[in-house]
Design a protein around this nucleic acid. Structure first.
Lengths: 122, 122
DNA sequence: AACTTTAATGCAACTTAGTCGCATTAAATA
DNA sequence: TATTTAATGCGACTAAGTTGCATTAAAGTT
């Protein structure tokens, strides 16, 4: 994926701050929370949140709240569910396609909470 | 539903604060956020949150974050999904049973985000 | 390459959600 | 009624997220 084009296609200016955020998300194997994402990127938090908001508006990034009450961010990808374990707080991306027959709605984000495979056995 | 028994069955003391929170949730037709739920109940916010945490631990209440970044609370009910519209921020309880074949997981909470029927037409 | 426009940034101050320790009070039980 | 233990209120705190404003940097234009 080409971050430079991704940003420009949405009529956003290509700044180092934005590059850094998106690079980090691109190379992450799972959604990242504020600390994880912001860490190492020297940028004011106001700028960070303004950029995140822009990214979300432009559908480049999406976010959701996890069990630890933190927001987690990821690059927008083909629709897939996130499973959040209420015991161990782990976030998993679910690859199996889930079938909702909700006519008229368009679904952009799916969050399932419960007990993951491991914690369910205990 | 009998709130008094609900609380006592979980080995929680029956206080007026708790009664008030649960009464309000019981009579609400949709999940409520902090302002809505706390409003009119004279109770310190520390107490409020401590009770909410207890209720969640004991599976009396569950909560999720909506699009406005606020947490919404509701009495625990038979599993059903919540649809949150990213345009109009409305929260709907979805009655249609949704079928997941996620073996090994136990699902306690389903949140779908996207465009609701109305906003999808625009 | 300098110039202009407009968007992005940093800073500081602020709001709101949520938490924690501690002394006090009220609920359940004996 | 006395005792135990959990629940409460208060105050102080942390962390997320927002806003206004002056400054700076990107992109487009001569």
């Amino acid at each position: 994926m080409d971050i430079e084009n991704l940003v420009k296609r949405k009529n956003l200016k290509l700044t180092t701050a934005r590059m850094e955020i998106l690079e980090k998300l691109l190379h992450a194997s799972r959604p990242l929370c504020y600390d994880e994402l912001k860490n190492g990127i020297s940028m004011d938090k106001a700028t960070f949140y303004r950029n995140i908001t822009k990214f979300e508006d432009k559908m480049i990034v999406n976010s959701f709240e996890s069990n630890d009450k933190k927001r987690y961010f990821e690059l927008n990808q083909p629709l897939h569910a996130h499973f959040i374990c209420v015991i161990c707080d782990k976030i998993e991306c679910i690859k199996e396609p889930l079938d909702f027959n909700l006519k008229g709605y368009s679904i952009e984000n799916i969050i399932l909470k419960g007990k993951c495979k491991k914690c369910n056995q205990i």
